[in-house]
């Protein structure tokens, strides 16, 4: 019961409001440190030169793109098994951030690919998988937006991300399979023996992305809660003047 207390939108709303700024500050500090170390302190790569530094953004965003979808699926399982509205709201709040990271990963991948492979887009297994991941995000958002009935949109969206995430490993495997069959570009993780001076900024950037995603998701879920619960008494009580509205509804 004590855990489920926070599953109620009315108790989570103020909690999210308190936590979000902290994560935003953490994201800013870690991001600044990571970028400084990555762009100015890490040594120049002897093969790729300065351009390799884009991996300090590319790799963490690609990880986040994948991770956020998995987290959405976890919320999906919670939404369908415990029937908690907040879980569905979290899925909805996370999706745009997931899309943003996926687009960033693809974009930085293309920018990196141009000088290294000589082309913006190669049908590399990982880039192709990331593109498909973007399609999965778009499918979720399209489905939820097409439904006027929010209750149904919540459940349908939850089921879709669960089905989608069950397929993600299969998709990754199949794309890798396809890639070896066609012997396209395969890029070994650059720097298989990554120097500590490169590992540190990578780690910082990853945590910065985490903190950013949490902060934004919390802020967005607050907006979603307000929008969905605008008729509820506790929302009206947030601003004392609005109490007139509820007395009319409940009478």
């Amino acid at each position: 019961m004590s855990i489920f207390k926070y599953a109620s939108p009315s108790t989570f709303y103020p909690l999210a409001g308190k936590m979000a700024p902290w994560f935003a500050v953490i994201a800013a500090i870690l991001g600044a440190a990571g970028l400084y170390l990555g762009l100015f302190r890490a040594p120049v790569d002897f093969q790729q030169g300065e351009v390799y530094r884009i991996i300090f953004i590319h790799v963490p965003t690609a990880w986040m793109a994948m991770l956020i979808y998995v987290i959405m699926a976890v919320y999906g399982v919670m939404a369908l098994t415990f029937n908690t509205r907040l879980s569905s709201m979290m899925i909805e709040a996370l999706a745009p951030t997931g899309v943003m990271f996926t687009v960033l990963a693809l974009w930085t991948g293309a920018l990196w690919g141009r000088p290294t492979w000589g082309t913006y887009w190669a049908w590399d297994a990982r880039m192709t998988s990331t593109l498909i991941l973007l399609f999965l995000y778009i499918g979720y958002m399209a489905l939820v937006n097409a439904m006027d009935d929010k209750k149904r949109a919540d459940k349908a969206g939850a089921l879709l991300v669960i089905v989608g995430s069950a397929n993600v490993p299969i998709i990754y495997f199949s794309v890798k399979w396809w890639n070896t069959l066609h012997q396209g570009y395969s890029v070994a993780a650059s720097g298989s023996s990554m120097d500590a001076s490169m590992r540190m900024p990578m780690l910082l950037m990853t945590f910065a992305c985490w903190a950013y995603a949490i902060a934004i998701a919390l802020w967005r879920v607050r907006a979603i809660i307000l929008e969905r619960e605008k008729e509820a008494a506790w929302v009206a009580n947030l601003h004392g003047s609005a109490s007139l509205k509820t007395s009319g509804v409940r009478a």
Binding site: F135, G139, A142, G164, S174, V175, W177
Partner: peptide, 17 residues
């Protein structure tokens, strides 16, 4: 069209194999 958006990415492994 929405069905296609949802389903096509999931069809990819079947297509590949």
């Amino acid at each position: 069209i929405l069905t296609a958006l949802l389903v096509l990415p999931l069809y990819i492994p079947v297509l590949i194999f």
